[in-house]
Computed example of a mutant assay.
Amino acid sequence: MAPVQIFTDSTNDLTPELLERHGIGVVPLYVTFGEESYRDGVDMYPELLYRKVETGGRLPKTAAPSPADFLNAFEPAVGEGKDIVYIGLSSALSSTVQNASLAASQLPEGRVRVVDSYNLSTGIGIQVLTAALAAEEGKSAAEIETLVTDIRTRVETAFIIDTLDYLYKGGRLSSLQNFVGSLLKIRPIVKVVDGSMILASKIRGRREKALDQLLQNVLAERDHLDNSILIVTHSMAYEEAQFVKHQLEAHTGARQVLLTETGCVISSHCGPGTVGVIYINK
Rank of each mutant, 00 (worst) to 15 (best):
P188S: 03
H269F: 05
M44G: 00
K209G: 11
Q256C: 07
P46H: 05
P65N: 06
V85H: 07
D40C: 05
S175Y: 01
E75L: 15
P3D: 12
D116V: 13
P46I: 06
P65E: 14
H234V: 02
T55S: 14
S66I: 07
G263H: 04
E36H: 04
G181S: 08
D116S: 13
E109K: 01
S174L: 10
L102E: 11
G56R: 09
K61F: 04
H246K: 13
D116I: 15
K139A: 12
S175N: 08
T11H: 01
P76A: 09
G88A: 07
L164R: 02
D9A: 11
S117Q: 11
D69S: 10
A210R: 04
V112Q: 02
A135H: 06
P108G: 06
L29N: 07
G171F: 01
K169C: 09
L230Q: 02
S10M: 12
S201L: 13
L102N: 00
P28Q: 05
T62M: 13
F74K: 13
V155T: 12
V155D: 11
M197W: 01
H246I: 00
V180G: 09
I266L: 15
G271W: 06
T96I: 09
A68L: 14
S37P: 01
D116R: 15
I278V: 15
E17P: 00
N12A: 13
A64H: 12
S90I: 09
F33C: 03
S235I: 13
Q216A: 12
K139V: 07
V192L: 05
A254K: 01
K82E: 12
E145I: 05
L89Y: 09
T149A: 10
I126M: 10
T55Y: 10
Q106F: 01
T260I: 03
L167I: 03
Q213E: 05
V114K: 14
L133I: 07
F74V: 03
I278N: 04
E36N: 02
L183S: 13
S94R: 00
S201T: 15
A92F: 14
P272N: 03
F243S: 08
G41C: 04
I186R: 11
G34H: 09
E20H: 08
L215H: 04
Q177D: 02
V180S: 04
Q216H: 14
I87S: 11
N99I: 00
E145R: 10
L184R: 05
A210M: 08
I186P: 02
T62E: 04
V275D: 12
K191T: 13
R58C: 12
G88S: 08
L120S: 15
L19E: 00
N178F: 13
G123D: 06
I203H: 11
G23E: 07
S175Q: 10
I203K: 07
N99M: 06
G125L: 02
P16E: 08
Q98R: 14
R58A: 14
